[in-house]
Design a protein around this nucleic acid. Structure first.
Length: 306
DNA sequence: TGACAGGGGGTGT
DNA sequence: ACACCCCCTGTC
């Protein structure tokens, strides 16, 4: 049923914590930790299990029927073509003590390269929502409107009630769904954004592909012309779905971080984004991910759940 | 074991 | 500044 576990060549080792932060730290919303401590995730047409071996290197397994194209797709998705250790080393951590401790706390943290259209969909869901709730929305979108990943195989091959039996709907599929139906995916006011974007994309074939290929500034401008896409969402889509590492999303966490750790109280998001690009340089988005991971960890240790 | 606020990784006006 | 939409979470 599942393919044998296979090492993923050309990817460095991970600690479990950094793997969690990479897969389930707000970049992507379709990775779920299973009871056996493996990660189960979907991107594009791919359904994948991931785990760490004894040497903390990544291993993957996919349903046998889908496993053929998995390795190269996974390599792209995980950014295996980029040396994140070297990129991280080129961040200005030597002159920035706070960045230095964030980098040290999450060694090997990387940016994903997700399918562009799916990234847009995920972050259109993200406004004023926490990760758990965004994950719930995209899971429902997939269940209700996405194509089954294993059309010919019995669901019993997977854990019961997994939210990962379907791909995300394509924008073409979404364009055929009336907004009131979309709302059943717990989207709230975001349903209108998604519906209008789907209509627009149906009327403008190639728009997504062209946008993804544009340089950062031009791509951001185009994304921001869509309803529900402001600067923050556009930067997330370009950072996590187009590999534009200069994108510097300013959300409330980064706002608080820059205020508290960098003395930038009362700054507005747009000037903060400018500060970020100036201070952290052309890989500002990577720096942002370290800062974000740090603040998430602080919040967890400050307000333990249980 | 239920009800009840309060707030939530923004955007648009 | 405030509405938008309403689910999740923490409380009582």
């Amino acid at each position: 049923m599942w393919s044998p576990w296979q090492r993923l060549p050309s990817l460095p080792s991970f600690t479990p914590e950094v793997l969690t932060e990479t897969l389930d730290g707000g970049q992507a919303f379709r990775w779920h930790l299973q009871p056996d401590a493996t990660w189960l995730g979907v991107f594009g047409p791919h359904l994948v299990r991931l785990r760490l071996d004894a040497t903390h290197h990544l291993e993957w397994s996919a349903p046998a029927a889908l496993a053929a194209g998995t390795a190269p797709a996974l390599a792209t998705y995980l950014g295996a073509d980029r040396d994140f250790a070297a990129l991280t080393d080129s961040l200005p951590w030597r002159s920035d003590p706070h960045l230095a401790r964030c980098v040290a706390a999450f060694p090997g943290l990387r940016l994903l390269r997700q399918p562009f259209g799916e990234t847009l969909l995920g972050f259109l869901c993200s406004a004023t929502k926490q990760i758990v709730q965004i994950k719930q929305m995209v899971a429902l979108l997939a269940q209700h409107h996405g194509t089954p990943l294993l059309p010919d195989l019995p669901p019993s091959a997977l854990p019961p009630s997994t939210p990962l039996l379907h791909r995300l709907p394509t924008w073409t599929q979404l364009a055929a769904v009336p907004e009131p139906i979309l709302r059943r995916c717990l989207l709230g006011f975001r349903a209108r954004y998604i519906s209008e974007t789907a209509q627009f994309l149906a009327a403008h074939p190639g728009w997504l592909e062209e946008t993804e290929a544009l340089p950062y500034a031009a791509a951001k401008e185009r994304l921001c012309s869509r309803p529900g896409v402001g600067e923050k969402v556009a930067d997330c889509v370009l950072l996590f779905g187009a590999g534009k590492l200069e994108a510097f999303p300013v959300d409330v966490w980064i706002l608080k971080t820059l205020a508290r750790r960098y003395g930038l109280d009362d700054w507005r998001p747009a000037p903060l984004a400018q500060f970020g690009r100036a201070h952290f340089g052309p890989l500002a988005g990577l720096a942002q991910q370290f800062l974000f991971a740090w603040e998430r960890a602080q919040k967890r240790s400050g307000e333990p759940k249980v």
